[in-house]
Design a protein around this nucleic acid. Structure first.
Length: 668
DNA sequence: ATCGTCATAAACAAAC
DNA sequence: AGTTTGTTTATGACGA
């Protein structure tokens, strides 16, 4: 017990915590703190209560409205999701915890990523698509709500006017303003949210933004310019919302572009992350902040863009940052309104996250469904090559998957990533579960993991395997594996003792990892057969699995799963063309899709060499190697059957591939 | 409640 | 002698 507790603490304390904890905490806290309790979690009751009260202050109104709108959206979302959502835990948990934390997030262990991180993780295109959808939905709801509110206001106004009260007008005006603001805010907040996400990558709204803006900026309020818009919205019986939506769309686009560029955060810099933050997450956040702050200085600010103030409801033009800052301080001072706006923003974000989760789930289900029928010819046009190439090109890989496209607007490939979980242990087998698309996931989010101190959502085993398979030789020394980890994941640049131990432990423990004696020394190889053996059933088929995945995974994971699905689906094609991976083929072949990724390496060196990956059957032999003494293994390697001259040691790696690929001989 | 998988920690031993 | 590499065992969290 002692040990355990100790470890636990360590883990949670450092990394994770921040993640979820901060998230929910902040959410609640900030909202609660700022204004009142209500905001946070479950607003339903609150909302209702609010409703009953006739009059409230503008701030209250805003708040109330937000909640209502959110609730509506929430319900809507829930309904939508209900179909997909898994029966048990998720739903219940979700509802229970109330929106505060997105399902996936909630599910995540403390160390998991925060929503912000998730957002960061998501590829810009994905984010864009998702957010757009979400925004559209939310806007619709808001619109309705807004209309109702307006009607009420009018009624009130009339009543008051009739009464002959002088104040009423003002009050009404305020209320109207508030409503309008809200609408605008929602829209703009969303935009902003997107922007922030994209630009900063992660920017955590709650922690960072909330505190930041509130303190510094704040509010302002609606600029005169806003009013017109607001009114416009009102006035236009048609659909103000739509307009706004459109606008958002536009903005988004713009944003997206920005985001894209942003995609590869340079932040690699160790210094930033190093903060002693607890574990990875914090670091991440920190780094993010830094980055954001940097941006600010340099000439950009999350709330400043295109020469104007991006504060929700404010479009004041500012020539430069300095002016903008002044504007922020003067116009957006800390007050109820700004506070309310922030709260709204937070809720919006939450809502979006939830929706994102739902949509992801849906997508998963869709993918799973599609996948289920392998028989169907997969239309994917995915060029194998592409996939292979994608693997690690830059980090930004486009997913080819045309297939996905049809299914959803989102880009499959882009998925972003997943990993969200920042945390520690969390990763749980998610990756494994799906069989991962680890490779594709990695390929796509290569840059992300490389720079973000986020724990990858893959098990050590899958990571080790990936590392090995990426090599032309398909073999790595322990030290090389270590290097791969540190090179590929920022997360593994810390706590080396811990994860290295874990790596060694995994190598020894899993039969799928075979130690081969080499001239050079010992290298580790992967026995795909074994690896596959241990893997759980594919999610594709069973809804349950899917469900699990969804629930268990963080957003990232979701994405990963998504990718996986895609990958899997595309896999067949890949194979057929035969291109994928030359060298790797052997290992992969037999198995599976997950390996899709295997091919990750663009050139397995001889890629060509490997003829055709031919025989999967050969593979079978390797199997128990591990159990057997090194000898067996050695046999394999050293004795390269085919013509490989000197495989291992000095020999070219490529040759090795062949050898490895045909290990079967020995077995037989 | 039980089982399997994973992560983490740690003790040891053998090889460098 | 100190470090690295491997192996094992123990323990706890999780999900099924």
């Amino acid at each position: 017990m002692m040990v355990e507790s100790a470890s636990e603490t360590i883990r949670s304390a450092p990394s994770g915590q921040n993640g979820v904890g901060s998230l929910s905490g902040q959410t609640d806290g900030s909202s609660g703190g700022a204004t009142g309790t209500t905001a946070s979690g479950t607003g339903r009751d609150m909302t209702t209560g609010a409703d009953s009260n006739g009059e409230m202050s503008p701030a209250e109104l805003l708040h109330f409205q937000q909640q209502q709108a959110l609730q509506v959206a929430r319900q809507f979302l829930l309904q939508q999701a209900s179909g997909l959502s898994s029966p048990g835990n998720n739903d219940s948990k979700q509802s229970a915890s109330a929106v505060q934390v997105p399902v996936s997030v909630a599910m995540m262990s403390p160390q998991m990523l925060t929503p912000q991180q998730m957002q960061q993780i998501l590829s810009p295109p994905q984010l864009q698509a998702l957010l757009q959808q979400q925004q559209a939905l939310m806007l619709q709801q808001l619109q309705e709500y807004y209309k109702k509110q307006q009607e009420q206001l009018h009624l009130q106004l009339l009543t008051q006017q009739q009464a002959g009260k002088p104040q009423p007008k003002e009050a009404l005006g305020n209320k109207q303003l508030a409503f309008q603001q809200q609408l605008l805010q929602m829209q703009q907040l969303q935009q902003q949210h997107l922007l922030n996400l994209q630009r900063q990558g992660l920017v955590s709204l709650q922690p960072n933004q909330a505190s930041g803006p509130l303190q510094t900026l704040p509010q302002a309020a609606v600029c005169p310019t806003d009013l017109p818009q607001l009114w416009k919205g009102e006035g236009a019986p048609g659909q103000p919302a739509e307009d706004s939506v459109k606008q958002e769309g536009l903005d988004l686009t713009g944003t997206a572009a920005t985001a894209t560029s942003f995609a590869a955060p340079p932040k690699v810099s160790p210094p930033l992350s190093h903060h002693t933050l607890p574990n990875g997450q914090p670091t991440v956040l920190t780094s993010r902040r830094d980055s954001s702050s940097h941006e600010e200085t340099p000439g950009s600010h999350p709330l400043y863009g295109h020469g104007e103030c991006k504060w929700p409801g404010c479009e004041t033009l500012c020539e430069d940052l300095g002016q903008f800052i002044k504007h922020l301080n003067t116009e957006h001072a800390l007050d109820d309104r700004s506070t309310a706006q922030c709260r709204v923003q937070m809720q919006v974000v939450q809502q979006l996250e939830i929706q994102l989760a739902k949509e992801s789930e849906r997508l998963q289900a869709m993918m799973a469904h599609l996948h289920m029928r392998p028989s169907e010819p997969k239309p994917f046009s995915q060029p194998v090559t592409v996939s292979a190439a994608d693997s690690f090109p830059d980090g930004l890989v486009h997913p080819p998957t045309s297939a996905a496209a049809p299914v959803t607007p989102l880009r499959p490939p882009g998925l972003g990533s997943a990993s969200l979980h920042g945390g520690g242990p969390a990763r749980r087998r998610s990756s494994d579960k799906f069989c991962s698309p680890i490779s594709s996931e990695l390929a796509q989010n290569h840059e992300f993991y490389k720079n973000a101190d986020v724990r990858p959502p893959f098990t050590y085993a899958s990571l080790i395997r990936q590392a090995i398979l990426e090599t032309p030789d398909r073999q790595l020394t322990l030290n090389e594996i270590y290097n791969w980890f540190t090179r590929m994941f920022a997360y593994f640049r810390r706590n080396t003792a811990t994860w290295k131990n874990a790596v060694r432990h995994n190598l020894s423990l899993h039969k799928c990892f075979v130690r081969v004696e080499n001239v050079k020394g010992a290298v580790w190889t992967v026995d795909e057969r074994e690896y596959q053996k241990r893997r759980p059933p594919k999610m594709t088929g069973s809804p349950t699995l899917v469900k699990n995945m969804i629930s268990g995974l963080s957003y990232g994971a979701l994405n990963a799963s998504y990718q996986a699905a895609l990958a899997e689906s595309s896999f067949p094609l890949l194979n057929s063309p035969g291109m994928l991976n030359p060298g790797s083929a052997s290992s992969l072949l037999p198995l599976s899709h997950d390996d899709v990724g295997a091919p990750v390496e663009p050139l397995p060196s001889n890629g060509s060499s490997s003829p055709p990956r031919l025989s999967p059957p050969q593979y079978s032999h390797q199997v128990h190697v591990k159990e057997e003494p090194a000898e067996a293994e050695e046999d394999r390697q050293p004795g390269p059957p085919l013509g490989a001259p000197n495989p291992s040691a000095s020999g070219p790696p490529e040759d090795r591939d062949l050898e490895e690929e045909l290990p079967g001989e020995e077995l037989s």
